[in-house]
Each structure stands twice: as structure tokens, then as C-alpha cells.
Design a binder for these strands. Structure first.
Length: 212
DNA sequence: AGTCAAATAAACAGGA
DNA sequence: ATCCTGTTTATTTGAC
């Protein structure tokens, strides 16, 4: 790895490509969400779109998705038997999405890398929390819990998680200056405006993005 | 072949 | 001093 030079703290603001960071552009390409193509810029258009929102919030596609997931080869290897989308997509009332959704993850997918990008893993973790907010540490835990692959994966995956949180516009940092009781660091939540995009990506990812 | 997003690695700063 | 968290840059890889 090359040396990192010019580590200027104020890079972010000045960086020409700062608005177009790793994020949902691929989602735009994968899914058909033309509005989201402007995700780099103002993120307004997407939410305003009734049809898109409708399409994403109604759960029709979930059935399809579930079937597809079942057919997905890794599905037998410890991935959710029930798509995580079942919980995540259903609005505010949540989740009975627990361990029972998985088939002995410890044993079956210990060596299988999850077919989800880090962004989606983080998204699932956050959406799963009661408050829809999690500190990084809990995001690690959730991922480890559901995808034991990471228990034996090189430690770099945590770096990737943090990298994603930092860089991906889908995730918002929530300072918790008033309560440091729970440890250090901030809470992370999903930017609601990007949620449909993430859902869309979650729907598509396993079938269009084979792992490396 | 070129572009882009994602993954990965690493340096670095700041706080607990 | 050490660990964790967060940010940033660089490189590689694979898909389109």
C-alpha cells in the first residue's frame, strides 16, 4: 500500500469529488431509480416520488425476493432463510428478526462471505436496532452475530465498516454528547432519504453482485 | 478499454 | 500508553 500523503483534515470540504462518494450510484445502476442518480447532489427528488416510494414501500416485491433468496445458492449456507427485508421494509413496527431467521449461522456460513455489501450490512444492523441507531461497536456485533464469516475474517472488515459509515451518505452520525455512559463514539443511523435506495439495493444485491 | 463502485489497506488525529 | 473511533487517501478488483 502506498504511503498516505497530504492528510489534510479539511480535505473533505475541499475535495472536488467529495459529493460523489462511494454510495448509491451503483444502486442506481442496479435498480431502476433514476431519481437517485442525483444522490450526490440534493437528495430531495427521490422522496418526493410517490410512485417510487410506493413501489418500495409496498411489499409485493418481497415475495419475489424471498423466493429468489431461497433459490440463492448461499441461502442454504446460513444466510437468512427469511429475507432481512421482511423486517426492515415494514415500517416502524419492528422486527422479530432474530437469530431464528438463520440456520445455525455459526456452522454453516463460517466461511461464506455474505452476499451483501458493507453498506447493506450496516443498514440491516441499524434498522434492526430498536432505536434505529447504533454505535459502531454494536454494528460490529450485529454483523458478527448474523454473519460468522467475519469472526474469522481478517480484522480489516471493521475498518471497512467504519470507512463505509464515514464515507457513505446513507449513514448519519448522531452525536451523543449528553450520554457517554454507553461508551465512546457516536450513534449511527440511516438517512431516511436514502432508505429506499438501500432497500432497493438489498433487494437486488445478492443477485447482481457476486462476492469477490 | 474505460469508468465506476465496492472492498481493502493504511495513516493519522482525537478522545476515553 | 493504549485502544477505539472517525476521517481520509490510495490501490485493487470486478461489473458494466
Amino acid at each position: 500500500m502506498g504511503p498516505v500523503i497530504g492528510m489534510t483534515p479539511d480535505k473533505r470540504a475541499g475535495a472536488p469529488g467529495a459529493e460523489k462518494v462511494a454510495g448509491l450510484c451503483q444502486i442506481d445502476r442496479m435498480g431502476s431509480l433514476p431519481e437517485a442518480a442525483n444522490a450526490a447532489g440534493p437528495k430531495a427528488t427521490l422522496v418526493g416520488s410517490d410512485s417510487a416510494d410506493d413501489e418500495l414501500t409496498n411489499l409485493n416485491w418481497l415475495h419475489e425476493s424471498t423466493n429468489l433468496l431461497t433459490n440463492f445458492s448461499l441461502g442454504r449456507e446460513g444466510l437468512p432463510v427469511v429475507s432481512p427485508l421482511y423486517d426492515i421494509g415494514e415500517g416502524d413496527d419492528v422486527p422479530s428478526f432474530g437469530q431464528s431467521c438463520y440456520q445455525n449461522p455459526e456452522k454453516k456460513s463460517a466461511t461464506s462471505k455474505p452476499p451483501y455489501s458493507f453498506s447493506l450490512l450496516i443498514y440491516m444492523a441499524i434498522e434492526h436496532s430498536p432505536n434505529k441507531c447504533l454505535p459502531v461497536k454494536d454494528i460490529y456485533s450485529w454483523i458478527l452475530d448474523r454473519f460468522p464469516y467475519f469472526a474469522t475474517a481478517p480484522i480489516g472488515w471493521k475498518n471497512s465498516v467504519r470507512h463505509n459509515l464515514s464515507l457513505n451518505k446513507c449513514f448519519q452520525k448522531v452525536e451523543r454528547s449528553h450520554s457517554k455512559v454507553n461508551g465512546k463514539g457516536s450513534l449511527w443511523c440511516v438517512d431516511p432519504e436514502y432508505k429506499p435506495n438501500l432497500m432497493q439495493a438489498l433487494k437486488k444485491q445478492p443477485f447482481s453482485s457476486p462476492q469477490r
